[in-house]
Design a protein around this nucleic acid. Structure first.
Lengths: 205, 205
DNA sequence: CCTACCGATCGGTAGG
DNA sequence: CCTACCGATCGGTAGG
């Protein structure tokens, strides 16, 4: 992945973060021990503390460094589509594909909320919003087919839609309900996001 | 709340569940100790094990007993509205109001996913779906204004919409973004759910 | 339902 | 970066 030569210290640090993110997403934060992280990264417990001051510091580093938006944003900007409908549909599929392949990050966000009450969320938003909001601002300006013209509302509802798909998917996936779901559930989700559950148009937003 | 006389054993059990749900939602599951639960419920550590075999059993009991759908379902059925638009709007506001007042349950669901990987979710759905799905089936049958005619899709998207509002609200609430949100965000959310982000109608679902 | 205890494991550190 | 250790706390139990 990394093309530049990394100093050994940096390599170990990355190995620790990689080990941690995998364990966190499997077990949550408090159920994951520093010893497990050390083992998985291939060093002794004490060695961790050359790179991180505490367990909490590992979690913070992971939340920032592993955020998938850096990977996703360029993909969205490459998304094609004649109409806005095609574009939005493709963009959503790209995001959800990327997030399911690195499913860990959605899990991390849920751990953040469940175990930390969202305390690191503010720092994360401070990095995310300045980079992502402009994309939605440009969208609102150039696309007349949008009913929703507030970029913040559009951003929140888009992220919310993706989240809601992924979370319900986790809960449903190993239950009897999964058999009742249509195979094109993702398409139906995107369709509802774009056109709503009701027939006919509305007036104001 | 309870009108019938409860045996003392049952009273203690409820006190334990009440203490547990509060601690779980504040700290998560693994960060909450049996001693904390005992203290909050007003008995000694050992006393817990007269009512629950393990910590996990407390969590399971809480997930089932504290599920808010029993409280919410009757409220929805009382929801008024001439048009389907009014009805859906009112229903959504009722659900979200109820969930924010007992915010704990959304937190419990996130703990479930974050710390247990959703293992108790299947049992929860087995109780929820048979009671809630019929409501959506009836809705699809009687209301011609719906574009989405698959009750399962409608149910999932409705729950997903509520979840996405509540989760983004938690993350945003104590960050700079909350100032950028419009005051009628909830209305905008419901509006998007009903009519989508795009102008104009679509064809198929 | 409480007291007193169990072995196990936790996050973190000293010292090299 | 490892070895060996610290005090604290964990979930759970025996015995009354």
């Amino acid at each position: 992945m990394q093309k530049e030569k990394l100093k050994k210290g940096e390599v170990t640090r990355q190995a620790l973060e990689d080990a941690a993110v995998e364990l966190f997403m499997e077990q949550g934060y408090h159920a994951t021990s520093m010893r497990q992280i050390a083992d998985k990264a291939g060093l002794a417990l004490g060695g961790i503390y050359n790179h991180f001051k505490s367990k909490d510091e590992i979690f913070e580093a992971v939340i920032v460094d592993k955020h998938p938006y850096k990977k996703i944003l360029p993909l969205i900007q490459e998304a094609e589509g004649e109409t806005l409908e095609e574009f939005l549909g493709n963009a959503t599929r790209i995001v959800i594909n990327e997030l399911t392949s690195q499913q860990y990050y959605v899990k991390l966000m849920l751990i953040e909320i469940a175990e930390f009450d969202g305390v690191h969320g503010s720092a994360m938003l401070k990095e995310l919003v300045p980079n992502v909001l402009p994309v939605f601002e440009r969208l609102v300006k150039t696309r007349k087919e949008l009913r929703v013209v507030n970029p913040v509302v559009l951003l929140r509802s888009f992220i919310g839609m993706v989240l809601s798909y992924m979370i319900t998917d986790i809960v449903i996936s190993d239950s009897f309900l999964s058999k009742l779901m249509p195979s094109n559930m993702l398409d139906a989700y995107v369709d509802i996001y774009m056109h709503g559950v009701l027939k006919g148009d509305s007036l104001n937003v």
